[in-house]
């Protein structure tokens, strides 16, 4: 019997480190102040958004510049469900996922007719359509936006401190859920197909992989995750408007920056990218709009020096994998093949 092994020494270290880091983050309320917790929660949302975009663009080859459509949809669902039906915010965050997945199906049917750059433009146009529709809903503040009613916010927890902790842990839980879901997906049979599509679409198709169906499924799944994160983001902000909800800058440009810097087509990339992005933002934010230009310069420098991003460079040079995704064939002494 062939035996296949997934783990390598670096991935065992990686998993141990990830477990340690996760424990430290879960206990962050013990060692971090309010501002740090808020910053960490924001980082978690970016790790999740970037991981989802990485799945979409890095693996499935669907370069969308319109994922803000689903961030905004999730955000508006939170407000609509709360204001119209009194749905508690935490429940609304969970409902946003399946609703967005349903909405994404007709959207996909439409934009999947487009290829390459036209697909990218199509996703952006869809997001603009979503933004215009949101600005027409008078009950949700129209073009100027609306705040989450205090009654809903106050009902979340007995004290403000508890509410903030609740949101912090929710952000951590959602980010971890997104990462674990992507990991499980990539480890599965579908992940094998998705990795093949990432590397060579032509060969994937002629090896029997239904590339179109796979892309469709990835698009719907990403919409699911992105909208949940969107709802969470606007639960943290407590206020929503069409311009903030469907911001191409905040929910797509920064996300692409993170993925490209960290390493596209690698599950570890978005985590590294988010850390770099926030380090830059925290140190350069005082420079005002100059900071965006600095970010651009960094992006170009990384793309020139390491086209596969920071993690891609590490993999190339050191052969590390943080997570046990590879399938290694183990040869038995008898000469009989086993795969681990």
């Amino acid at each position: 019997m062939s035996r296949v092994e997934h783990a390598s020494r670096s991935s065992r270290v990686g998993v141990a480190l990830a477990g340690f880091g996760l424990a430290a983050l879960a206990m962050a309320p013990l060692w971090a102040d309010r501002a740090t917790l808020r910053l960490l929660a924001e980082m978690f949302t970016y790790v999740a958004l970037a991981s989802l975009w990485n799945l979409l663009a890095g693996y499935a080859g669907l370069v969308s510049v319109g994922q803000q459509a689903f961030v905004g949809l999730g955000g508006y669902l939170l407000f609509a469900l709360g204001i119209q039906f009194g749905v508690p915010p935490l429940a609304a965050v969970l409902v946003a996922g399946p609703v967005a997945a349903l909405v994404s199906i007709p959207v996909a049917l439409l934009i999947f007719r487009l290829r390459g750059a036209y697909f990218a433009i199509g996703t952006w146009v869809m997001a603009e359509v979503f933004r215009l529709m949101a600005s027409q809903i008078a009950a949700l503040g129209g073009g100027s936006g609306i705040s989450l009613p205090a009654s809903l916010v106050l009902a979340m927890a007995p004290t403000r401190q508890w509410r903030e902790l609740e949101i912090y842990w929710l952000a951590l839980a959602l980010a971890v859920a997104v990462l674990v879901a992507i990991f499980v997906l990539l480890r599965s049979r579908h992940g094998l197909a998705l990795t093949a599509v990432r590397d060579n679409e032509l060969a994937a198709q002629s090896s029997g992989i239904d590339v179109r169906r796979l892309k469709f499924a990835v698009y719907v799944l990403t919409a699911f995750g992105t909208a949940m994160i969107g709802a969470l983001i606007f639960l943290m902000k407590l206020r929503i408007s069409p311009d903030t909800a469907f911001s191409v800058n905040d929910w797509t440009a920064f996300v692409i920056f993170i993925v490209v810097i960290g390493g596209i087509g690698r599950i570890e990339g978005p985590i590294i990218g988010t850390i770099v992005f926030f380090l830059l933002r925290q140190t350069l934010a005082d420079l005002g709009s100059l900071y965006l230009m600095m970010m651009g310069t960094v992006a170009i420098a990384v793309m020139l020096a390491a086209p596969k991003g920071i993690w891609g460079l590490i993999v190339e040079r050191l052969g590390w994998q943080m997570l046990p995704l590879q399938r290694r064939l183990v040869l038995e002494p008898s000469g009989k093949a086993r795969a681990r």
Partner: peptide, 21 residues
Amino acid sequence: QPFVGMTVFENVVVAAAFGAG
């Protein structure tokens, strides 16, 4: 047209799993 980011074994596993269903 190899899957360049995968191992040689994984390349063949992909074809065996999906091509042969």
